[in-house]
Simulated assay, not measured.
Amino acid sequence: MSAAVLPLPLVAGLAGLLGLLVGSFVNVVVHRVPAGLSVVRPRSACPACGHEVRERDNVPVVSWLLLRGRCRDCRVRIPLRYPAVEAGTAVLFAVVALAETRPPVLLACLVVAGAGVALALIDLDHGRLPFAVTGTAALLAGAALLAGWTTTWALQGPSAAAGQLVGPLVGVLAWGGVYAALWAVTAGRGMGLGDVALAPLLGLVLGAVGVSAAVVGLALGFALGAVGSLLLTGLGTVRRGQRIPFGPFMLAGAGLGLVAGEPLATGYLRLVGIA
């Protein structure tokens, strides 16, 4: 089943608009969740003067441009990071919509993409991946995949539905198994429990896309982490042996697995003479 009642460019455009809204919410999550604050109340306010952000000043990207990057009341500069996160999430959502067209899987991928932006930024800022964000994303993505699975069962029968379970099962076992084993072997020194909790979620959703996406995404996460560690150590940004946030590398690898997992896997198998 594909999403294709609408033209793909239109689907990508609608996903991009949704990404703008989600990106605005991501900014709230990144600011409030690490501080243990509610993401619902109170309404957003300027941290300098305390005035609540007006509705007309809360339009993603556009309001920042119209305000020339400053608070309407006190004229304190609003960090460029806010519209950058909104625009970046919009682009990410559009790319995901171009890469995956099956509605339940697409919805699950978008949930993880939005949560992934928040998790990556929190990990870079605070060195942790909050279980609240990962758990909420797991519930929403799992519900989307379950809805797709039950629909397949109803329309195509149990054998087709059983076939849909193979990819997610392989993804969860591969990602969850590898990260849990590394955490156990290193006694938690190599990575945190937040990484271990995030791994099966990424494996689940990538496995729903395809086994190639799950396996390639897993491998690329470690490859990017190794290269990033070497670069940061070489530049003197981190000391040798110092733990660096691994969540962004996991998520970047997962993203590459989503958009390029199949061709990369096929190319590798041909290179080694298997395919």
Rank of each mutant, 00 (worst) to 15 (best):
L230E: 09
P245A: 14
L202P: 05
A214D: 08
V209K: 01
L201V: 13
G203A: 10
R243P: 00
G234H: 06
V209I: 13
L202N: 12
A214G: 10
G241H: 11
L204K: 05
G217Q: 07
G217P: 11
V209T: 13
L198Q: 04
R239W: 04
G225H: 10
L231D: 06
V227Y: 05
V211C: 07
L235W: 14
A208P: 01
G217D: 11
L202G: 10
F222P: 07
F246C: 07
L235Q: 13
S212G: 11
L231F: 02
G210I: 02
G210Y: 01
A223I: 15
V211E: 07
G234D: 06
A199I: 06
A226R: 00
L224H: 02
G217L: 05
A226V: 13
V215G: 04
G210D: 04
L204M: 15
V196Q: 03
L220W: 05
L231N: 03
S229W: 01
L202R: 04
G217N: 09
S212W: 01
S212M: 03
G228M: 00
F246K: 00
L230I: 13
L198T: 05
V211P: 00
T233N: 00
A219L: 15
V196Y: 01
L235I: 02
L201G: 10
L206C: 06
L218A: 12
A214N: 07
F246L: 14
Q242C: 06
L198N: 02
G234F: 03
A197E: 14
I244L: 15
L224W: 04
G225V: 10
L231Y: 05
V227H: 07
P200T: 13
L204G: 10
G234V: 09
L232V: 03
F222R: 05
V209P: 02
G210A: 09
L232M: 14
F246H: 07
G228F: 03
G203I: 06
V238Q: 01
R240H: 10
V238E: 13
T233G: 08
G225S: 13
G234P: 06
L202C: 14
G236D: 12
A223P: 04
L206E: 07
V209Y: 04
P245Q: 11
T233W: 00
L235H: 08
G236Q: 10
G228Q: 08
G221N: 09
A219W: 12
G228A: 15
